[in-house]
């Protein structure tokens, strides 16, 4: 349960990436989340709204892109996905495998509402 400190890191990244006078315009923070990122999306979402409330980021929310756990077998070169973390190749039984994805925990994009949209 370290979602609270992860949410704080996300707030820090947003504050460093967006000019101060535009922070209140942030609506969506896109986060890449691997199957084995070690954080729970719902819990991270909850923590983010808890710490951003009553700050300029109060209107921002997190949007997740879930990234599957994918592994490539060095023996038969096949790529396979699973959500249980197996790293042995289901095709040839090869044990020499490389993790391609599934560990991501990354802020990718920040979406802001523009001036003209606000006045509509």
């Amino acid at each position: 349960m370290h979602e609270l400190s992860v949410a704080q890191n996300i707030c820090d990244i947003v504050q460093q990436s967006v000019p101060k006078n535009e922070l209140a315009d942030v609506r969506i923070v896109r986060v890449k989340l691997g199957t084995f990122s070690g954080v729970v999306a719902d819990s991270l979402d909850f923590c983010f709204s808890a710490i951003s409330a009553e700050t300029p980021l109060a209107k921002a929310h997190l949007e997740f892109e879930h990234i599957p756990f994918a592994v490539r077998c060095n023996h038969c070169q096949k790529t396979f996905e699973n959500d249980i973390g197996f790293m042995v190749c289901p095709e040839c039984g090869g044990a020499e495998t490389v993790i391609l994805s599934g560990r991501e925990l990354q802020v990718t994009e920040i979406e802001l509402e523009n001036e003209e949209e606000k006045t509509i």
């Binding site: 990436s17 986060v31 925990l105 802020v107 994009e109 920040i110 979406e111 802001l112």
Partner: peptide
């Protein structure tokens, strides 16, 4: 809407 591309690891400080 305008979009800022960030691509930063959340645990980069650590």
């Amino acid at each position: 809407m305008s979009v800022i591309t960030v691509e930063r690891k959340v645990l980069e400080k650590n």
